[in-house]
């Protein structure tokens, strides 16, 4: 009955941490929580594991100074405010609708999605005819990114995020007030206020380099604007003097260009049936990268200096050595 013993011990630990008026020292936990060994080393090992498992479930176990100790001693506590599910007032049909959404749209890895979704529904009270989430008949899948949860927390607590992000020079540290996260065309984006560029910017989560470092809670105040995030266009995210690029795209490929560049850039059709686009750009390398993904189905018409630069760039590549 090892599973039952462990379950009982962890429930007792949780009860003690929730009930204690002040942080409990490790010694107090060993003495007063039923189920722990009297051997100090064995207790340590078991307690560390239990603590990790509770945290993994989302139990906010904190380390805090114990009042009245000198030298100051640290103890463990669980803040009930942060432990308890807020009152959501979800109606039964609303919880059932959530179950249907979780069955239809899979977020991330299938097994993790099923487990996390089922556990979430239980915490919300479950559904009368069963709460298991099974995605076999799912309609859609959305990738998960471990940064989503970090950013969601940062948005809630108004924490400024700092992370390295690729730039024209390699990579740059960005300081961002997180406003929204969005999923478009297969990628997750963070939209927020970029303090260094003093403007709203978008960042693809999978291009963020390394960890996101978050500042303390309340490090920004302004409410995010209610406008819906624009599509992210990297050629519009540079620091060059804005120029208007004119391109012509073959008819068979124009729909994709139109969708990516935006309807407002369409500037008619030429005599070869190609669609013309006039695109304001502030990053030539980013726009060139977009343009060449059409291979020979698109042509840069203007401005002449960028056209000359493109020709030189392509000529260099055409003559480059390969191993």
């Amino acid at each position: 009955m090892a599973a039952a013993d462990k379950f009982e011990r962890m429930m007792n630990l949780l009860a003690a941490l929730l009930d204690a008026p002040r942080p409990l020292s490790a010694e107090q936990i060993q003495d007063r929580v039923a189920g722990y060994s009297t051997d100090k080393e064995a207790f340590r090992r078991t307690f560390e594991r239990d603590k990790d498992e509770l945290r993994d479930l989302g139990v906010p176990i904190q380390l805090a100074p114990i009042p009245g100790t000198f030298p100051e001693q640290q103890g463990y506590k669980v803040d009930r405010q942060r432990y308890e599910l807020p009152e959501l007032d979800l109606e039964p049909d609303e919880i059932a609708a959530l179950r249907l959404a979780l069955q239809t749209v899979r977020v991330g890895d299938p097994d993790a999605h099923e487990n996390e979704s089922t556990a979430a529904l239980w915490r919300l009270g479950g559904v009368d005819d069963g709460s298991i989430v099974d995605v076999d008949d799912g309609l859609a899948a959305i990738p998960a990114d471990p940064r989503q949860a970090v950013i969601l927390d940062a948005m809630r607590d108004r924490r400024v995020c700092r992370f390295a992000y690729p730039s024209e020079e390699g990579s740059a540290l960005r300081t961002v007030e997180p406003w929204r996260v969005g999923y478009r065309r297969g990628h997750w984006y963070l939209t927020g206020y970029d303090g260094d560029r003093e403007a709203q910017r978008q960042f693809r989560l999978d291009r963020i380099l390394g960890e996101i470092v978050v500042d303390g809670p309340g490090t920004f105040t302004g409410p995010p604007p209610e406008t819906r995030g624009e599509d992210y266009r990297p050629w519009d995210d540079g620091s060059e003097t804005p120029v208007l690029a004119v391109i012509a795209v073959d008819a068979a490929h124009a729909a994709w260009a139109r969708e990516t560049l935006g309807e407002q850039t369409v500037a008619g059709t030429d005599d070869r049936g190609r669609t013309r686009f006039m695109v304001p750009i502030t990053s030539w390398p980013a726009f060139r990268s977009f343009l060449v993904s059409f291979l020979d189905h698109a042509e840069l018409l203007e401005p002449p200096d960028l056209r000359a630069d493109l020709v030189a760039w392509l000529t260099a590549i055409a003559g480059s050595e390969e191993p």
Partner: peptide, 26 residues
């Protein structure tokens, strides 16, 4: 129950995100 066990444990950020993402997609 003692009062401290009368509310369920809150959702983890991953669970909250999963619910919102699946719901918003539909």
């Amino acid at each position: 129950l003692p009062e401290y066990f009368t509310r369920p444990l809150r959702l983890t950020p991953t669970q909250t995100f999963g619910l919102i993402a699946a719901g918003r997609a539909l």
